[in-house]
């Protein structure tokens, strides 16, 4: 019984850790006149199928670097695609003349970029130092 309880506690904690440890915050430049985004809208933005905000400003999606596990998490959760499929897709879109998401290498640089560029939208893992950007969604 003790062994069973030990395993039960271990697996519960392990599961709880994977389920709750990671929260992704979708942030945007404060000039954007949209306050919330759904996962479907985010998917359209990152797949370059929604190029403009409702006010006509171009959307500039920001991605993390290819080796980032946060990018992998975001790709699986929101875009529901593997990193490799997405890279192929963005390369094809790039060849067709569309701009793939801009890549930034850290939470800080994503925040700095989104703060600076009107129309920019990105995702970060921590809520620290979010001055000058607004949070549009919290995932999952």
């Amino acid at each position: 019984m003790r062994i069973f309880l030990t395993f039960w506690v271990f697996f519960t904690l392990a599961f709880a850790d994977s389920a709750f440890a990671r929260t992704v915050y979708v942030i945007a430049n404060p000039s954007i006149q949209v306050s919330k985004l759904t996962q479907d809208e985010l998917e359209k933005i990152y797949l370059l199928r929604q190029p403009y905000w409702p006010d006509g400003r171009a959307i500039v999606p920001v991605n993390r670097e290819a080796s980032s596990d946060l990018r992998e998490f975001f790709s699986n959760l929101v875009l529901k695609q593997s990193m490799r499929s997405l890279s192929n897709y963005w390369d094809q879109m790039h060849f067709r003349g569309k701009s793939p998401p801009v890549v930034q290498g850290s939470n800080e640089s994503v925040i700095a970029f989104v703060r600076k560029i009107p129309g920019a939208i990105g995702y970060v893992e921590e809520l620290a130092n979010l001055d000058g950007v607004k949070v549009m969604a919290e995932l999952p």
């Binding site: 171009a58 500039v60 790039h94 793939p100 890549v103 600076k116 129309g119």
Partner: peptide, 13 residues
Amino acid sequence: AHAQSDDYILGQG
């Protein structure tokens, strides 16, 4: 207005 990252990305120039 659409300044981007100045980094080079293989495949995306």
